[in-house]
Design a protein around this nucleic acid. Structure first.
Lengths: 348, 348
DNA sequence: GCGTAATGGTTAATCGATTAAGCACTCAAT
DNA sequence: ATTGAGTGCTTAATCGATTAACCATTACGC
C-alpha cells in the first residue's frame, strides 16, 4: 500500500525539506537563514516546501549546535514561605513573560528545591543549559543556592536586594524608604503615636528593610522606645495572629509589612470590635491586588512587581548577549492612599 | 601562566569526566546510567569524578538523542481576555508545576500568540519539540489553534470543555450543574424571583455553560421569561458596567458568571445605594481568592483549579509515556456560602 | 583565450549523549 | 585443548542544525 502523498511525517526535519526540493540539508539551512550564497529562486522554493511540510527547527538540534537554548528560567527557590502561588508571582511572571516573548525566548519556570547529587533542580536547569540564564526571586538571606548561582559564572539576575552580593546583578525597590514613607504618613497625616509594626519573615531582606524603614520613621519622630514590634511571616494568618497583641497594646496605628497580613489583621480586629480606621489606622505593603478589594481598602505602598520583573528580564538578556550589566534604576516608592488609614471615608 | 589545577571548565561534558577517569564517554554514560556492563569499581570512580567536576548532562544533547525534551508546556492562547495574570492562572500553574516536579520535568510557560509562518509561538513550542506535550487552558470556542494542536498528533490536554472535540483529552468541571446549583440557592433558600445573569464572554464555553445552568434553574422554576441577561466579559469592569441595568430592572438577585464581575458589580451597586444582600442577593463563581476578601464575602462556586490542573498534568504524562488517556473524573460542584447572598450576617 | 571573480551550491565536521555492535580477555565445562 | 559464556570496556553510528571549507559553473575583463 503506497503512502498517501499528503502524509507528513510526525517530525519534519531539515532533511525532509531538503529531499522535497532536491537539495542538501545544509543548503536548506542556509536558505532559511537567508544566506547570500543561496539564489533567490531556491530560497523561495525552500520556504514554500518548509511551509507546506510544516517544518519547525528542532530546538534540541539547534541548541546543541548553537550552544544556547533560547530559553530563560524564572526560579523561585523558596516554596515554603507562601511565595509561589502568590499574587506577587503572577506579576513577576507577567513581566518576565512579556520580555521573553519580545526576545522570542522560551520561559522555564522552576520551583523545585529537591536536591540530587547536591544540586537543586533549579541549579540543574542552568548547568544542563536548559536555559541560558535565570531570574531568581524571593530568595532568603544566606540561601546557599543564591551564592552558588551568582558565582557560577552563568547569567543570573536577582530580584530583591542582596547586600551579601553587592556585585550580583539585581533589581529591587527601596523598601527602607518606602516603609519609612508610609510610616510617616501615619505619624504626620494622621497624628498616630502608638505604632505597631508587624514584620515579615526576618530571613528575607525585604522584611528586614521594611522594618528598618519603620524604625527610621519612629526614630525621627522620637518615639522609637514607644512602639511594638511583632514578628510575622507575610501570611494572612500571621496578621490575624498579631491582632491580640495590637489590641492589648492599645495601638492607634499598625504598619503591616505586607497586605496579606494587613488583611488578616483587619479582619481579626474587626471581629474584636475595633473600628478601622476610626480607632486604629492600618497600612500594608505591596498592592498586588488584595489591598483594593477589601473594605476598607488598604492604604499601602505600590510595589511595581511587573515592571521590576521586566527590568530584570532586560538585564538578563543583556547579560546573556553582551556581558555588560546595565545598572537598573530603582523605582520611587509610591503610596496608594485608600481608606484603612483614615484618609477617605469608606464607600457605603 | 599555567591554569590553576582546580579550574573547572564552564561547561562540563561527558568527555571531561571520561578523561578524568581514563575512559571513553560511552563508558561514563553507561556507568552513570547504572548499566550492568560496567564494573562496580568503575561506577564509583565515575560518580566521584562527575560530582567533583559538577557534571550535569546537557539537556540539548540528551533531548536530541532521546527524541524527547523532558519538558511540558503550559499554553495560554488567550492573552486578550484578562486570563494570563489572573488568579486562575496561578492556581493552574501551581498544580501543573507540582506534578511536573514530581516527574522531574521542566515546565515551559507559553503565552505568545504572535504568528510567524502561520504558526503561533506556542504551536512552535510543540513542533520544535521544546516540550513533549502541552496543557492548553482558557482557549476560546472555535480557536483554530486548539484544533491544530489537538489534531496534530502531539500529546495535548485541554483544560475546559470542548464539545467540538469530544475525543480530545480534557479536564473540566460541570459548569452547567454548578451554575444551576448556585442559581437554585438564590431561588430556593432566599426566595429571590427577579434574577439577572451577567455572563462571561460567550465565545468561551465556560461562559456558555454557566449561562446554560442559570437558564436551567429559572426554567425549572417557571420564571424563564422574567429574568434579565447581561453580557459581560469576566472583567471587573464589565461587572461594574452591569450595575445600572441591574438596578433599573429592580432585580432582587444577581448571578455573576465569575467573582471579578461580582466584585465590580457589588461596588457599583453599593455606591448607588443598593444594600447587598438586603435588597439584592449576589453570587459569583470561581473562588480563586477574591471572593473571600471582599465585604460582604461573595457566595460562589468553588472551582478547584489547582486540582484540575494536576489532573490535566497527570493525564498529559500518561499520554506522553503510555498513549492511553485515562478518563478524568469530573469534580462535583461545591458552593461556598458567604454573605453576599444573605445567608450569614456580614461581620462588623 | 585565459586568469579571476562571482555564483550557488555540496561535503564534512561539530555540538553532547546514548546505545547497538564489536572486541579482548578470563574462567569453566566438555 | 577447545568451545562457550561472561565481563568490561571501546568503536562507531545516530539524533538535527549549522557552518567552515571546498568545488563546480558561468561571467567577465583585458
Amino acid at each position: 500500500m503506497p503512502e498517501a502523498t499528503t502524509t507528513r511525517p510526525a517530525r519534519v526535519t531539515l532533511r525532509h525539506v531538503a529531499e522535497r526540493v532536491g537539495l542538501t540539508p545544509a543548503a536548506v539551512s542556509m536558505a532559511l537563514s537567508g544566506s547570500s550564497r543561496i539564489s533567490e529562486k531556491t530560497k523561495v522554493a525552500v520556504r514554500e516546501a518548509a511551509a507546506e511540510l510544516g517544518y519547525v527547527p528542532s530546538s534540541a538540534g539547534r541548541a546543541l549546535r548553537r550552544q544556547q537554548s533560547g530559553a530563560i528560567a524564572l526560579i523561585v527557590p523558596n516554596t515554603t514561605h507562601h511565595v509561589f502561588g502568590h499574587l506577587y508571582f503572577m506579576h513577576v511572571l507577567t513581566g518576565v513573560a512579556s520580555v521573553a516573548n519580545g526576545q522570542d525566548a522560551q520561559l522555564l519556570v522552576s520551583t523545585n528545591a529537591d536536591e540530587a547529587d547536591g544540586i537543586t533542580a533549579y541549579e540543574r536547569v542552568l548547568r544542563s543549559r536548559s536555559a541560558d540564564g535565570a531570574i531568581v526571586t524571593s530568595a532568603a538571606i544566606g540561601d546557599p543556592n543564591v551564592e552558588r548561582l551568582t558565582t557560577s559564572g552563568l547569567p543570573v539576575v536577582l530580584i530583591g536586594r542582596f547586600p551579601e552580593f553587592p556585585e550580583a546583578p539585581s533589581v529591587w525597590i527601596d523598601d527602607v524608604a518606602s516603609s519609612r514613607a508610609i510610616t510617616e504618613h501615619l505619624l504626620q497625616v494622621h497624628g498616630r503615636r502608638r505604632l505597631v509594626h508587624v514584620t515579615g519573615p526576618l530571613d528575607h531582606q525585604t522584611a528586614v528593610d521594611r522594618r528598618e524603614g519603620f524604625l527610621a520613621a519612629v526614630r525621627a519622630a522620637g518615639i522609637e522606645h514607644d512602639c511594638l514590634m511583632v514578628e510575622g511571616d507575610f501570611s494572612e494568618q500571621s496578621g490575624t495572629d498579631a491582632a491580640d497583641a495590637i489590641r492589648d497594646w492599645h495601638a492607634d496605628g499598625v504598619v503591616f509589612a505586607n497586605d496579606d497580613m494587613a488583611f488578616g489583621g483587619m479582619l481579626a480586629l474587626r471581629v474584636a470590635g475595633v473600628d478601622i480606621p476610626g480607632q486604629v489606622s492600618v497600612v500594608g505593603f505591596d498592592d498586588f491586588g488584595l489591598a483594593r478589594s477589601t473594605t476598607p481598602g488598604i492604604t499601602t505602598v505600590h510595589v511595581p512587581a511587573e515592571s521590576i520583573a521586566e527590568t530584570a528580564a532586560h538585564l538578563l538578556f543583556a547579560l546573556i548577549s553582551g556581558g555588560v550589566a546595565p545598572v537598573a534604576p530603582t523605582p520611587e516608592p509610591e503610596l496608594r492612599i485608600r481608606e484603612s488609614c483614615g484618609c477617605r471615608p469608606a464607600p457605603s
